[in-house]
Design a protein around this nucleic acid. Structure first.
Length: 482
DNA sequence: TTTTGAGTTGTTCGA
DNA sequence: GTCGAACAACTCAAA
């Protein structure tokens, strides 16, 4: 007896390895629903995230249509929309894939209770993680707090399940006339006036198909040498899968198995060591979700509460200079402009830029986390706060306090020829390699030759590195003795 | 309960 | 130019 079912898409905008969609589609005619969550307690998407979402929903709509299905889009508060829709459409089965941020956990739990009480079956699944956050524990059953121990324990649980194929066919459920579905364009997710998304369009292809192609290209290309090259922002040495993962256009089980089989069959360019390094990055994503689930206020509160006494500075001028890529430190300015233009920043540069804001400028990590949340296409409720707290030293597995990245040293080490800087900070591009990461050391002739006038074409450094470093170490001392 | 070894991503100094 | 040590002390995980 076919049961009218509803699959609620959230952070799982794909057909393959989507257990909740598969369950709904095999039960009977299926209403495929996306709700733009507005006005509820959940953290709203940033601008870059909304852009990606609009493209990803379009790709999902087309993919569903190829299977006979239809994407229904609504906007508003899911807690109000979903129960009414279930009643209006006579739905017997509601499915979704689980989310792990505190607000979503509360909302989903409440919805499950309400719908179940009203006589609807609700089934939730795991599409986002290799391991549920509660499945990896210490011997005493506590959440893990150290990455290496976490990842070792997670690995000992065995291979992740094999990914599911997409449903062969999705029978659409006819909507009653009183339900007014929107088009994706109605959501007005893309920037209009001004249209700042040109760099995003040039850089990215959202959607499940593109995600799968990206993984394939990575495995047969940049995976070779990944362990060594992944820190080089001047090269195409990373997977660039992060926004696809963020929106669930691809899942970690698919990545895991594709990587393993590509290496074993010899199709991949990389060694087993490269694959291990890459998969451990997936492990960091898992660890971040583990931390978020067990610490729902991860984006708001210091994981290590001793940092509540940290003497942050308020400095709107410096914060703006950092956001706009006008700090006078080329590697940082390059990263911040790459972020603004493409919605993405190389991970190594994220660490350098974050360390600079937190330590040299002494600005609260939450200001930086907010900015990344708004501008990153991969802004993730777990990865973003966990990584910022890690750099700040307030997070799990925190770095020693004296680990203050020097933007010149880091630039010379990871962008040795200045290729990355020249690409994003072209106004100093004529400087020779020795000066490209420290233009203030150029003499008058070199500056004239490169067409640089400090304060006009490019800023002087907004803070002295030695002063900034000492001030950061002093601040940590002050916090410790507070 | 106590003890012990270990812990993503660095910088600077001085030999 | 290269290399090792110091940086200062804390928490976690497991035996």
């Amino acid at each position: 007896m076919p049961a009218p079912s509803l699959h609620w898409f959230r952070d799982d905008l794909r057909l393959a390895d989507n257990p909740a969609l598969t369950a709904a589609a095999s039960a009977g005619p299926t209403l495929c629903l996306y709700i733009l969550d507005e006005g509820g307690p959940r953290r709203p998407f940033g601008g870059a995230g909304l852009w990606w979402l609009s493209k990803s929903l379009k790709a999902l709509e087309q993919a569903l249509a190829r299977k006979g299905g239809q994407l229904i889009v609504l906007r508003g508060d899911p807690a109000r929309i979903l129960p009414r829709l279930v009643e209006q459409c006579g739905i017997d089965l509601v499915t979704w894939n689980r989310r792990y941020d505190g607000e979503s956990v509360v909302l989903d739990r409440q919805l499950m209770a309400d719908l179940t009480a009203a006589g609807t079956t609700v089934e939730s699944f795991n599409a986002a993680l290799l391991n549920e956050p509660w499945q990896v524990t210490t011997k005493t059953g506590d959440p893990m707090k150290v990455f290496t121990a976490y990842w070792r324990t997670a690995r000992q649980r065995g291979e992740p399940a094999a990914p599911l194929p997409p449903p062969e066919r999705i029978e659409p459920l006819k909507l009653p006339a009183e339900v007014e579905a929107l088009s994706i364009a109605d959501l007005a997710l893309e920037p209009d006036q001004p249209d700042w998304a040109g760099g995003l369009r040039e850089t990215w292809s959202p959607g499940e198909t593109a995600a799968s192609e990206r993984l394939g290209e990575f495995l047969s290309g940049a995976l070779g040498g990944y362990a060594e090259q992944r820190d080089r922002p001047d090269r195409e040495a990373t997977s660039r899968l992060s926004p696809h993962l963020r929106f669930g256009e691809i899942g970690p089980r698919q990545i895991w198995h594709a990587t393993r089989s590509a290496v074993e069959s010899g199709e991949a360019a990389g060694s087993a060591a490269d694959a291990e390094k890459f998969l451990s990055e997936i492990g960091w994503r898992e660890f971040s979700y583990h931390l978020l689930f067990h610490n729902p206020d991860l984006a708001k509160a210091n994981y290590n509460r001793r940092f509540d006494a940290f003497p942050w500075r308020k400095d709107a001028v410096a914060l703006t200079a950092w956001q706009r890529g006008l700090t006078g430190y080329p590697i940082i300015d390059a990263g911040m402009r790459q972020l603004w233009t493409t919605g993405w920043m190389h991970n190594r540069v994220r660490m350098i830029a974050a360390s600079f804001l937190i330590k040299h400028l002494l600005i609260d990590w939450r200001r930086g986390e907010d900015w990344f949340w708004d501008t990153l296409v991969d802004a993730d409720p777990a990865n973003n706060p966990a990584s910022w707290q890690w750099v700040a030293g307030s997070g799990a597995d925190a770095s020693p306090y004296y680990r203050v990245f020097n933007p010149v040293t880091q630039g010379l080490k990871f962008d040795p020829k200045g290729i990355y800087v020249r690409r994003w900070v072209p106004e100093i591009g004529e400087l020779e390699v020795a000066l490209i990461h420290q233009p203030w050391k150029a003499d008058a002739a070199a500056l004239r030759g490169a067409g640089i006038e400090f304060g006009k074409t490019y800023p002087r450094p907004i803070v002295d590195l030695d002063l900034g470093r000492r001030r950061a170490l002093d601040a940590l001392q002050a916090m410790r003795s507070a």
